[in-house]
C-alpha cells in the first residue's frame, strides 16, 4: 500500500525551492547580506542573553549554559521549521492577489506549493548560529545513549511543533486576509518563550504552554531530562519523553485546520 506520493511531493517541493534559490541569487549582495543579517539577529539575541547573565548568577534557577541549551534547541527547531515552510505565513497575500487560485489549478498539493513558494536560504544564518549555541551548550550535558536519543527526538519534534504552529495559525488568513501578525504571536512568540527557562512564568502560563500551545515540548521538558533536573512545576516525568507525541498531535491538528480553511476558501476574484 506504500504509495510513492509523499516522495513525489517532496521532489516537487525541492524543485520549486531550487527555483527560488536561483531567483534570489540574481541579487547576490542581498542574498549574502540577508543570510549574514539573519545570523546577526539571532547572534545578537544571544549576546543579549549573555549580557543579562552579567547581572545574574542564574535566571530562575538556571545557569547560562543551561539557558543556552534551551535557547539553542528552540532556535534550531524554529529555524528548521521556518526554512522549510515559513512561506505559509504569506497565504493572506496569495489570497488577496489571486495567486492562490493559480496554484489551485496546478497538479501539486496546495500546501506543498505554498510552503515552497519564495523559499529562502537566508535563514541558514539563524540555523548556523543556533547550531553553534546548541553545540556549545551540549558540551555541558552528561551524555548517555538515552539522552542522545531524547536530544535528537527533541529537535525533530520541536521542528514539527513549529511546523504545526506555522501552518495552523496561518490558516486564520483564510478568514481574514491581512492578519498575518496574529500567527507571529504563536510562532515567534513561542520561540521567544522557549528561549527562557519556563520557571520564570507562573504555573498557569506553563499549563497553557503545555496543553494549549504545546511549545513547552519543543525544549523545556526534554531539556529537563538532558540536564537531569527535577521539574520545578512537578509535572509528570513522562512529559519529558512526550515531545514526539506533541509534535505529531500539533501537526495533525494543523493539517485539519488547513483542510477546513481551504474548503472554506472563496476566491477574492470575479
Amino acid at each position: 500500500m506504500a504509495s510513492p506520493q509523499p516522495a513525489r511531493h517532496l521532489r516537487t517541493y525541492a524543485q520549486i525551492a531550487w527555483l527560488w534559490i536561483r531567483a534570489a541569487w540574481q541579487y547576490p549582495t542581498s542574498f549574502v547580506l540577508l543570510a549574514v543579517g539573519n545570523g546577526l539577529i539571532t547572534g545578537l539575541d544571544f549576546v543579549g542573553l549573555w549580557i543579562m547573565f552579567s547581572h545574574l548568577e542564574d535566571l530562575a534557577g538556571f545557569a547560562l549554559h543551561e539557558v543556552a541549551l534551551l535557547y539553542g534547541s528552540a532556535s534550531l527547531a524554529l529555524a528548521l521549521a521556518d526554512t522549510a515552510i515559513g512561506s505559509v505565513e504569506r497565504i493572506g497575500t496569495y489570497i488577496r492577489t489571486g495567486r492562490l487560485d493559480q496554484m489551485m489549478t496546478k497538479p501539486v498539493p496546495l500546501l506543498v506549493q505554498v510552503c515552497a513558494d519564495q523559499f529562502t536560504l537566508r535563514r541558514l544564518g539563524r540555523l548556523t548560529q543556533a547550531a553553534a549555541v546548541f553545540g556549545w551548550a551540549c558540551t555541558y550535558v552528561d551524555w548517555s545513549p538515552l539522552r542522545v536519543l531524547v536530544a535528537v527526538s527533541m529537535l525533530a519534534s520541536g521542528a514539527l511543533v513549529f511546523f504545526g504552529l506555522f501552518v495552523g495559525f496561518s490558516c486564520v488568513q483564510f478568514w481574514t486576509t491581512d492578519a498575518t501578525e496574529f500567527a507571529n504571536a504563536f510562532t515567534y512568540g513561542g520561540a521567544t518563550v522557549t528561549q527562557y527557562p519556563l520557571s520564570i512564568f507562573p504555573r498557569e502560563v506553563l499549563v497553557g504552554l503545555t496543553f494549549v500551545v504545546p511549545v513547552a515540548f519543543v525544549n523545556w521538558y526534554p531539556c529537563l531530562f538532558l540536564l537531569g533536573r527535577t521539574d520545578p512545576f512537578g509535572m509528570p516525568e513522562a512529559f519529558q519523553f512526550a515531545s514526539p507525541l506533541a509534535g505529531v498531535l500539533t501537526m495533525t491538528a494543523a493539517l485539519l485546520v488547513w483542510r477546513t480553511g481551504v474548503r472554506h476558501y472563496t476566491s477574492t476574484g470575479s
Binding site: 530562575a60 491581512d178 501578525e181 507571529n184 521567544t192 518563550v193 527562557y196 520564570i200 512564568f201
Partner: peptide
C-alpha cells in the same frame, strides 16, 4: 484586522518579556 492582530502580538511579547525581566 492587521492592526488588531498586531496589538495582540505586541501584547503577547510584552507579557513574555515582562516575566523575563521580572525574573532578572
Amino acid at each position: 484586522a492587521a492592526t488588531l492582530a498586531g496589538i495582540f502580538t505586541n501584547s503577547v511579547f510584552g507579557i513574555i518579556y515582562s516575566f523575563a525581566y521580572l525574573a532578572l
